[in-house]
Amino acid sequence: MLKIWSMKQAQQKEETAQGPAKKKKVTAAQLRVQKDLSELALPQTMKTTFPNPDDILNFILTLTPDEGLYKSGLFTFSFAITQNFPHEPPKVKCQQKIYHPNIDLEGNVCLNILREDWKPVLNLNAVIVGLQFLFLEPNASDPLNKDAAKDLQEDRDRFRRNVKTSMGGGNVRGETFDRVMK
């Protein structure tokens, strides 16, 4: 008879004999991020860059919309993934000061799946698609930048003009925005 049980005990003995992890352990979050990154299907309008190639939990996403009101802009987002991933969503921030109803002046992003609707079966691709969607369809309900949302809701043309001004580094309602033209 095969002695599976004793094999298992031998495994455990071996494990305790080895003592505490001798080499740096790859964490659950790293494993999962690695899988997510390998499955990323980025369109031409998006690119990821890793400032520290050894650290896959922190990277930059560059977004260059090719349609919509934010066309020909260049936006970068920092992704910071905690060791709790995928139980916690990645922390995503826009690195430019931009005029957008769903992004505040500090760069915080209002996207349901980055907040209350996050669930661990979502992957980085879902987040990135969500970000892209925000630039194609800015959303006036539940805004982070209330002024921008008001403009979008009341007068789409005024909103369009403000987006253009802000992207050129101009001034909208007393706020100066970063120049983000490609």
Binding site: Q11, T27, A28, L31, R32, D36, H87, V121
Partner: peptide, 16 residues
Amino acid sequence: GICRVQFEGTCAKCKY
């Protein structure tokens, strides 16, 4: 769906 490893494999915390 959480760790994206096959069910017959282990979760990220387990060895066997």
